[in-house]
């Protein structure tokens, strides 16, 4: 126990402004305010991997680490679409995931915000649109509110993308 405490105090608080610039603090504060006003301080996100390579998932995990600590803004990832405010979708939509993606979307309450994350959701990425196994881009399957570019987008891109979607 003592060693655990020692380690915790030695590392200290490492949570930092997302991008080392003033822009982030503004973004962070704005994000927090928006979430406070529109979602009573808590924004629940359901993630669906609709065919990604797992790269985007690694960066979503990273957004939860102590440096970015996405939860400080009131954002958390939820296990069920039933109480999700936002759907985060990664990957081109594979033909074998299309139905599951539609079902997840339909299971959500309004406002059913949808963010598509990664280059795959813009143009199906390296997998290509002329591919029998790809049903299409996310927006071909369900309505999309915002797209975050990158292969994969960095954790700070992700957080800023979420803010941009909320303030539209």
């Amino acid at each position: 126990m003592l060693r655990i405490l020692h380690q915790i105090f030695k590392v200290g608080t490492i949570t930092e402004p997302l991008v080392p610039s003033e822009a982030f603090e503004v973004v962070g504060a704005k994000l927090q305010n928006t979430i406070k006003q529109r979602f009573r301080g808590s924004l629940a996100i359901r993630l669906v991997d609709a065919g990604s390579c797992n790269g985007c998932e690694l960066e979503i995990h990273a957004a939860n680490n102590a440096y970015y600590d996405i939860e400080r803004f009131g954002i958390h990832f939820t296990a069920s679409p039933r109480f999700a405010d936002m759907l985060l979708v990664t990957g081109p939509v594979s033909i074998n995931m299309k139905k599951a993606l539609e079902m997840t979307y339909n299971a959500m309450p309004t406002p059913k915000l949808v963010i598509a994350m990664g280059d795959c959701t813009i143009n199906c990425g390296v997998f290509g649109q002329d591919n029998y196994a790809i049903a299409g881009k996310v927006e071909d399957i369900i309505p999309v509110d915002a797209v975050i570019a990158g292969c994969p987008p960095s954790p700070s891109d992700l957080i800023q993308g979420i803010l941009a979607t909320l303030t539209v």
Binding site: D49, G51, S52, G91, P92, S94, I95, N96, M97, A100, V126, F127, G128, N131, Y132, A133, I134
Partner: peptide, 21 residues
């Protein structure tokens, strides 16, 4: 579920293009 036809999509690519896939 995440079958993306990668083996087929590789067909017809050059080696350096294929490397990205």
């Amino acid at each position: 579920y995440v079958h993306k036809g990668i083996e087929r999509a590789m067909k017809g690519r050059t080696a350096s293009d294929g490397l990205k896939l």
